[in-house]
């Protein structure tokens, strides 16, 4: 079935053997009869259809395509069973897709939201989570003015030194300092959180499946465990967390912070703002990247169109030429 001769190849063989068979013995004439019947004119259209490479290629494509489509739709291959040790609940509920203000291909971050999100991080999350990839200066021109950031940095004491006596000393923070961590080291962080380590949040949006959607769902998804779900003392039920039992309790409640722009601080508003802030922290280049991407798409499509046109232009001579051969009149 797989190796196909070009359409009509059999017919030629039949004609050839038919022409010669008169001088050959009876055994050689047997194939001629078969070939003759298979090349009857009534079935030749059907034959050339089944023998064509295009038919073979499209049948293959259809088969592979429908299997790939099935696998994409249902996540498994058809007719092949699978066994999982985890139930879907243990892998965590899939978060819904939220319409983030920076979701589209050309959408920048909502910087007012980043500013509110910083406030939520500072007043709530910073009690347990560090953000050690972000320096004070990174906030300048993103969510705060220079003066505001300088004032915020100065409220924090940093250890510096050594001075000319060889001693370390405390000084107020500068723009170049990184945001202060809540705990001096990992052991202290675990000791204060019943053994669970609150992860650094700098890259958390990139570090979790579902990104911003997941963290929003996690922060707003706390509820009572379903009947029969055993939960250890000090753990909290959250359907979005893999395993469903998380050490971090619900931290966001309506009215927990007071926004300076007057936005009502509901739980979901704070969650949205802090996730937008964390998304910025993970992708500070986001706005510039999308803008550069737009430029690149426009420029490269123009260049592609130009080079396709130039190729056709240059090849037009070769494609349209005719070669004429005049045989010599005498030899």
């Amino acid at each position: 079935m797989l190796a196909r001769l070009p359409a009509g190849a059999l017919k030629n063989v039949a004609a050839l053997s038919g022409a010669r068979s008169t001088s050959l013995n009876a055994a050689r004439s047997l194939p001629r009869v078969r070939f003759a019947s298979s090349s009857a004119s009534s079935s030749s259209a059907f034959e050339s259809f089944t023998n064509s490479r295009v038919t073979l290629a499209s049948a293959t494509l259809l088969t592979v395509g429908s299997i790939a489509w099935y696998a994409n739709l249902y996540g498994t291959l058809p007719f092949i069973g699978e066994v999982h040790a985890n139930s879907p609940a243990e892998e965590g509920l899939h978060p819904a897709q939220y319409p983030w203000s920076h979701g589209g291909l050309l959408d920048s971050f909502d910087h007012a939201s980043i500013r509110r999100g910083y406030q939520v991080y500072r007043e709530v999350c910073a009690a347990c989570h560090s953000l050690d990839r972000i320096a004070w200066r990174n906030l300048v021109g993103v969510s705060h003015t220079v003066d505001e950031v300088k004032a915020m940095a100065e409220e924090v004491e940093y250890e510096d030194g050594p001075n000319d006596q060889g001693e370390m000393f405390q000084r107020p923070g500068k723009l170049s300092d990184y945001l202060p961590p809540p705990y001096p080291n990992e052991e202290a962080a675990r000791a204060s959180n019943q053994g669970a380590l609150p992860p650094d949040l700098s890259l958390i949006v990139k570090a979790r499946h579902g990104g911003a959607d997941y963290i929003f769902s996690l922060l707003t998804g706390y509820r009572d465990p379903p009947a029969g779900f055993e939960i250890r003392e000090g753990m909290n039920y959250n359907p979005y967390f893999p395993g469903n039992a998380i050490s971090m309790a619900r931290v966001l409640f309506d009215g927990l912070v007071e926004y300076d722009d007057g936005t009502p601080a509901t739980t979901s508003q704070m969650a949205k703002d802090v996730v937008t802030f964390l998304n910025w922290a993970a992708e500070p280049e986001h706005d510039e990247r999308k803008k550069a991407g737009l430029k690149a798409v426009i420029l490269f499509s123009a260049l592609t169109a130009i080079s396709l046109y130039v190729k056709r232009h240059k090849w037009s001579i070769i494609k349209s030429r005719k070669i004429q051969y005049n045989p010599p009149s005498s030899h």
Binding site: D107, T145, D147
Partner: peptide
């Protein structure tokens, strides 16, 4: 084009509220 599309969302749009 970028600034029109993202009107009101960028820092330069909200900066005036915070500079003294």
């Amino acid at each position: 084009l970028w600034d029109t599309w993202n009107k009101g969302k960028q820092w330069k749009d909200i900066r005036a509220r915070y500079v003294e």
